[in-house]
Design a protein around this nucleic acid. Structure first.
Lengths: 351, 351
DNA sequence: GTGAAAGCGCTAACAG
DNA sequence: CTGTTAGCGCTTTCAC
């Protein structure tokens, strides 16, 4: 006997519930969906027999009539998962208790694969699509406009009039730099990624807005090696050395911390270092652990889930770009007192 | 007008195709599904009009009659994503061209959440479930037995008679250690994770099988700090120092490499180091980049996808544990020549 | 070869 | 307040 047959044979339908409860199928349906009007007694009786029988409505049948599949598609080009994972977790979290399931659609940067996935979502009649990526200033290689279902863009660029969710890079950067200033640092430099990234520009601008337009910004790749090299460059120059480095991501920050240690410079006593992304695996393994800006990607995902649900239910949502706040997670690399309570000390479990 | 209404209004049904092609709905259905018998001419004509009209069959309706949703659930407790991500990517890859979509079900280690997701999958009538986790010797906090659909376990422990896919830790370890031996190393030690992990035991056994039963194995946490500490311990002892360290994961290996460098010991000239997991972010950032054992998790995911498909189609699959081979990815940390061709030099893109 | 008709399991008008 | 009836869009016997 095939699985499908077993399933068919054993599964109880609303018909069974109705029969046992002594009502018609229609009444049973209304009772279970809290619609229509009937005595509380009938409703309760139906619900109880349904529960007793272990009735689970067939989502396909329901979808067919309601034109709603209780399913959304999550489109992403971030195989690496660094940014997408928390977003996915948030989306899933926001939707699961509403009975909405999430289709995972990884498209790499392949337009053809993107089309395959979009077509599949069309066929499966998803109630909405959440597009997410690894860069706030890049679009996915698929056209999601004119689709017969709502779309929300999270951590990826969307069309002009779309609903887009991004992290507030400027605010995150500002908090980090202000924290350093409050800690008494006078000579702060910013070592960050390539200028071509919009977020790099935003963070740098926020940095300069706090320390003054003369604030020094060094651009390079997003790597530990670059953090290392930047320290080499800064500390080989004549004149005052920086007493704080605000980094564009945690990898650069780690490179900076390691390079400083190799030079015998003590972090955070002599130099404070702050990272960006709060990527646990990097920030926690650094010695000392990195203070870092967390982009709250999970919350961003949750918000995306909430929005797509509202849209699916036909509620109006104002289009435009929403910036969600970042938060500074304080560890030991910048001195000062811990401010944030959610230090995820996190033992990393592993095989 | 709501999205659902737009969708309903604009969507063309098989009825439209049939009308335009001048056949009955039944014939159209058969033509499009390559079933039934009819003239080639009719079949082609129907297919062409379907294509011209941009007909996309309604997956819900099809599922309702076929008792097959062309959907599988991917259950995971690995929020962190380290091991799950490649598995997910593989699963998705194997299924997408078969028109099968993947439901993402992240359950943390929460049994209640697990039940919610399993119930949702039951409702949505997934054709199968792939369970995956972060440890090969731990079960997910959900009972997947007796479900009316097939289940495949990938990188997580399943019941005795289940279909389970795991990496061949022993073979991976053996290849790594043999590589070190071939490179002329005589005094190899193994610095690895806690003894409580089954895979730790397997790798250690394989290690001893190659270097002899006297081979030294040090257990500790899965952290860089432990790698660091292990070097401190080994190099402060009297007697011969190791000329190679085989590590239980890349983080430990990185700790080892860093500690050696701090002692002025050159890797790989004086000491070779090999990691495990081939976690790009760690192995590539290490100086020098780590040679590491790759568990081929993506291939494992692909295989899981293939198997669940076969099961869903009613084909028989032999139960039992399948071990998939690991492969050694050679970088610079152990000397010798590059052997593997797929060095993913990988620039890590980031915001 | 082709089509009419009967569902798949559920919801929603519309009567009673 | 409850039940009858008519679909949702597609597949599948079974006649013609």
């Amino acid at each position: 006997m095939r699985y499908a047959d077993v399933a068919k044979a054993e599964r109880i339908r609303i018909y069974d519930v109705a029969r046992v409860a002594g009502v018609s199928v229609a009444t049973a349906s209304k009772a279970l969906n809290d619609t229509g009007r009937m005595t509380e007694a009938t409703r309760t009786r139906v619900k109880q027999t349904a529960a007793a029988l272990g009735f689970r409505p067939n989502a396909m049948a329901r979808a067919l009539t309601k034109h709603r599949s209780f399913t959304v598609g999550l489109l992403t080009n971030d195989t690496y998962g660094r940014f997408t994972l928390p977003v996915m977790a948030g989306v899933s979290e926001a939707l699961v208790d509403q009975g909405v399931s999430v289709f995972l659609c990884g498209i790499e940067d392949d337009a053809a694969l993107g089309k395959v996935h979009v077509d599949a979502m069309l066929d499966k009649q998803v109630d909405g699509i959440i597009a997410t990526g690894k860069r706030i200033d890049r679009r996915l290689p698929v056209d999601l406009s004119g689709l017969p279902m709502p779309v929300v863009y999270a951590f990826t660029e969307g069309p002009e009039d779309a609903i887009t969710l991004v992290s507030d890079d400027a605010q995150g950067a500002r908090e980090a730099v202000e924290w350093l200033v409050q800690a008494g640092r006078k000579n702060i430099v910013h070592v960050t990624g390539p200028e071509t990234f919009v977020s790099v520009g935003e963070r740098a601008r926020a940095f300069r807005a706090v320390v003054g337009e003369a604030g020094r910004v060094l651009h390079g790749p997003w790597s530990e090696a670059w953090g290392h090299e930047a320290v080499g460059r800064l500390w080989s120059e004549a004149g005052d050395k920086p007493d704080a480095v605000f980094c564009g991501n945690d990898q650069i920050a780690r490179g900076v911390v390691d390079a400083l240690r190799e030079r015998g410079i003590v972090v955070p006593d002599q130099v404070s270092v702050v990272g960006f992304d709060n990527w646990e695996i990097v920030s926690a393994a650094t010695r000392p652990p990195l203070t870092s800006v967390d982009m709250n990607l999970k919350e961003l995902g949750r918000e995306a889930g909430r929005l797509i649900l509202e849209l699916a239910e036909g509620k109006p949502v104002e289009p435009g770009v929403r910036q969600l706040p970042c938060k500074l997670v304080v560890r030991q690399s910048c001195g000062g007192v811990r401010r944030s309570s959610d230090q995820q000390g996190g033992v990393l479990e592993e095989v």
